[in-house]
């Protein structure tokens, strides 16, 4: 099972990058470890049980890969192409995504809570049961996506489109929305008022 190990450095509360024993701040050579993870992501069709908290990746494609039960929390992703990926139980909480592509992804039970999404394209995707609580999303597209049971509560969303989406049971309660379009989507079936409880 996916086990997050703590960083071995005395007093550090961060988690160890898989296979290293240390977090990114206490690695001897973080660039080398980043390169290794980047290679692992590119060369394998399926990646699972990977913990890479605080990783920074730029200008790469992992399109079409399968990512299962992995954690990239607090990471920074610049122009990374996740198009066509299958993601199951992947943690991107508090990450920063700039101009990333998530087109045609099959994403379930994944977490983006607290993330910053700038100019990202999630269009034509199955983004089901995903946690986008308190994200800051600007210039993003979720057009043509199935967002069933996902949640955007307390998010700050601007210049972003949800055109022709399935919004059944999607939570948008307490969101701040500027220039957000829900055209052709079933927004009547989403929650915009008080959050439903468990």
């Amino acid at each position: 099972m996916f086990e997050i190990e703590g960083c071995k450095h005395d007093g550090c509360l961060l988690t160890a990058v898989t296979g290293t024993g240390y977090c990114f701040y206490h690695l001897e050579n973080p660039a080398e470890v980043t390169e290794g993870i980047s290679r692992r992501l590119k060369e394998n069709e399926t990646i699972k049980n990977l913990n890479a908290e605080y990783i920074e990746l730029s200008d790469m494609s992992i399109a079409g890969k399968n990512l299962y039960v992995s954690r990239f929390s607090h990471g920074v992703f610049n122009r990374v192409d996740f198009s066509g990926c299958s993601l199951r139980i992947v943690f991107f909480d508090f990450c920063v995504f700039r101009d990333c592509l998530f087109k045609n992804t099959d994403m379930k039970y994944s977490v983006f809570a607290g993330a910053t999404l700038n100019g990202c394209d999630f269009s034509s995707s199955d983004t089901v049961h995903c946690n986008f609580n308190r994200v800051t999303a600007k210039g993003c597209s979720f057009n043509g996506s199935d967002l069933y049971f996902s949640t955007f509560a307390y998010s700050d969303i601007s210049d972003t489109t949800f055109v022709d989406c399935n919004l059944k049971k999607v939570r948008f309660n307490n969101t701040k929305r500027i220039e957000v379009s829900f055209k052709y989507s079933n927004y009547e079936e989403a929650f915009f008022g008080e959050s439903p409880r468990l």
Binding site: F94, Y109, A153
Partner: peptide
């Protein structure tokens, strides 16, 4: 038991 997963860190910060 219902809905999407999260992390304890996220809930500390994002759960009103």
């Amino acid at each position: 038991g219902h809905g999407s997963p999260s992390t304890l860190e996220a809930e500390r910060i994002t759960n009103p």
